[in-house]
Each structure stands twice: as structure tokens, then as C-alpha cells.
Design a protein around this nucleic acid. Structure first.
Lengths: 147, 147
DNA sequence: CTAAAACCTAGAGTTATATCTAGGTCAAGC
DNA sequence: GCTTGACCTAGATATAACTCTAGGTTTTAG
């Protein structure tokens, strides 16, 4: 049993356009064709595409994903560069998680202000300070006046 | 004391081009100008730009960041929509962290294979299976032959 | 056998974000 | 007061990653 491009689109969430685009970009060299030129996806192809989605969803560029896929096509002789590539990318993912976690704190700090019963007063006070800072530097403030 | 665009570029990591681009896109309405039209950034402007970076680094689109900034320009009357916007975005950040954490597991699973002393054998066996699957479906495999 | 639906390619168009260029104006140091 | 470097705008160009169109072929269902 093989799958059509439409099946794979439904299974992976990638549009048919995107799948053909990825193929054009050399990301799907493992996908075989029928005699008449129609793509025939196997189970193992789907699992490779899921790996591609994993790398893409963690921010790897398509040209780097292509490199990784090219290594996998070469078989067991390319284990060392593959390991290197994934180890580097692993660090990129960890850094992203850390940065998101940091930024989440900042968002939560803002939400704490907005959720405070004194939110209005705090914000008004902030604007007063900002306008004071502008005034000291002889600058017009674009913030709405605090009544 | 105010800062020039170059100072702010160094302080935030955004290029001068990007800062001007953000201004053009309406993300920096709070930045005042000198009489001769040169941008004069205050401390509070820098802190607003850091908020913009936080939102950008967590995947918010510039048009949504602009909306948030527009709310802040309106003062304490826009606390409710600001809270809504950040609460929604907070969930986006949490989802991203979860997805990255999931994908990290997948990468680690691949690295486990590559780090195994039997890596070569495991990979060769996988390719044999993939080629077998292709053969069963009368398809040519593009994978390198396993000797 | 035929019509409709699904597939194909090549290449054009879109979107978001950023970067650069040209042609000026402004400000700081000599 | 001049030069040099930093600033300004408007608009062109770039880049990644799709997304769509046109025109054609293949498969499937009746």
C-alpha cells in the first residue's frame, strides 16, 4: 500500500503545494514515482516527512534540512555529520526553550499589572513618568494625556 | 539624556535599518523627534522596544505588536484589550514551549541511535527495511545500496 | 468510452520581515 | 565655516517559505 500526495497532506498537515515545493527543493529525494510519474509515498516516507516537520517546527532552515536528508540518503557512512548536525540543532532548540521561558516571565509580569485591582492607577502613573521624561528633554509626547 | 538610533541599535541588537523599518510600520509611535526631525530615544522608549523584542522573539507578528503598542499609547482605557491580547499570546508561548519540548525528545531519540555503538548496523537495517518496502510496491529506491 | 477528479510541471505571485541605495540634511570637531 | 560622519526619507531589492495558475496527463467511476 502506498499513499497519494493528498493522503500525505492530510496525514502531515502540510499542504499539497508545500509537499510539491519541498520535493522541488530536494527535501523528498526518498519519495519514489510510479511509471507514469505520480508520487507514491510509503510508510517510511511518511516517517521521514515527520522528521522534516520536526526539524522545521524547531526552526531549522529548509537548506539545512535538505543537507540532513541528503546524509540519510547516503546510508550509514554519514552518521558522524548527521550526529554533528543534530547535536548543534539540539542546542538551538534548548536555547529557544530557554528564551521563550524568559520571555514568558516578562509577559506574566505585564499580565500581573493588568490583573491588579490598581491597574489603572499604575498605568496612569507610568504615563505621567514617561511624559515627565520627555518634557525634561524638550520632547513632545505622543502618549494620550493623563486626566 | 536621550539616545540616538545607533545607541539603541547597540542596546537592543536590532539593526538601524530594522529600527527605522519598525518606525515606518507604526511600532514606535512613542519615539519623539528633535526640531530637526532626528529621533530622540528616552529610557522609557528603550524599555518599550524591549517589550517589542519580547513579543517578536516569541513569534508575534508585527501587525499584532503594533496593535498592542497602539493600545499602550491610548493609556489606561485599553487595559482590557491589552490583557486579552497578552493572555492569548501567553498561550501561544506555552504551546511553543510544549511543541519544542516534544520535538526535542524526537531529536534526542535520533541522537541515541547515532551515539549507539551499533549505530551503523541499526541504520543499515533500517535502509534494508525501507528498500524492502519500496520493492514490495514495485518502486525504485533512491537510498544508497547496503553492501 | 468518457467525464470528472486527482495528479503532474514550470513558473508567476504573495507575504512577512528585513536590508540596502540614492539623494539629501544635520551636527560635531577642527 | 567646512568637512566628515551620522542622521533622514522614499522606495528598490532580498530572502525564505510558501501558494497559486495555466496547461497538460493520468486515474477512476459510471
Amino acid at each position: 500500500m502506498t499513499y497519494t500526495i493528498k493522503d500525505v497532506s492530510e496525514m502531515t498537515g502540510l499542504s499539497i503545494y508545500t509537499l510539491r515545493f519541498y520535493d522541488k527543493e530536494g527535501l523528498l529525494p526518498f519519495v519514489s514515482r510510479t511509471k507514469s510519474g505520480i508520487r507514491a509515498f510509503t510508510e517510511s516516507d511518511i516517517s521521514q516527512i515527520k522528521t522534516i516537520c520536526c526539524l522545521k517546527n524547531t526552526g531549522m532552515q529548509l537548506k539545512d534540512i535538505r543537507l540532513y536528508i541528503e546524509y540519510t540518503m547516503e546510508g550509514s557512512g554519514t552518521i558522524i555529520p548527521r550526529k554533528q548536525l543534530l547535536t548543534d540543532h539540539r542546542q538551538v532548540i534548548v536555547d529557544q526553550i530557554n528564551q521563550l521561558t524568559e520571555n514568558l516571565k516578562l509577559v506574566d509580569a505585564k499580565l500581573d499589572v493588568y490583573n491588579s485591582p490598581y491597574a489603572k492607577d499604575i498605568i496612569n502613573e507610568q504615563i505621567r513618568n514617561v511624559n515627565e521624561e520627555k518634557k525634561e528633554n524638550c520632547l513632545l509626547s505622543a502618549y494620550r494625556e493623563v486626566k
